[in-house]
């Protein structure tokens, strides 16, 4: 097999996996799913590190570092915010006595 065909094979199989794994998601989880998928493409950080590491001029280094910063924001921010959302879905409700005392007070 020629090399482009190997890559094409990986690509096509990944498309099917990508569709298959999320095909049964309930609309409840659309927001965290979108945000989680968003974090995963932050993996471009890996590419940004590679090209920056081989930068030869000051300009290349500057552009590369900008890419590293942007990609890290995408990746780290994406995973943290998704976790924050999901934490709320799994959190247990506090004991009901907290609900019955204050009138109109906001419990946070």
């Amino acid at each position: 097999m020629s090399e482009p065909v190997v890559w094409l094979t990986i690509f096509v199989l990944s498309v099917f996996v990508g569709v298959e794994v999320i095909s049964k998601v309930s609309s409840t989880l659309h927001t965290p799913l979108m945000s989680g998928a968003n974090a995963i493409h932050g993996i471009i950080l890996l590419g940004a590190i590679l090209v920056t590491g081989y930068a030869e001029s000051g300009l290349e280094l500057a552009v590369g570092l900008a890419a590293v910063v942007l990609a890290t924001v995408n990746m780290v921010g994406g995973f943290v915010v998704t976790d924050r959302m999901l934490q709320m879905f799994t959190r247990k409700r506090p004991v009901p006595k907290a609900d019955q005392n204050g009138a109109g007070g906001v419990t946070r």
């Binding site: 990986i10 990944s14 099917f16 569709v19 999320i22 998928a37 995963i40 471009i44 590419g47 590679l50």
Partner: peptide, 22 residues
């Protein structure tokens, strides 16, 4: 593909495909 890096290819494709479906 450009950088010869499989994990970028797979991760990107997963997000691309699932994102389009979503």
């Amino acid at each position: 593909y450009v950088l010869d890096n499989t994990v970028l290819l797979v991760a990107g494709t997963l997000v691309g495909a699932s994102g389009t479906f979503l």
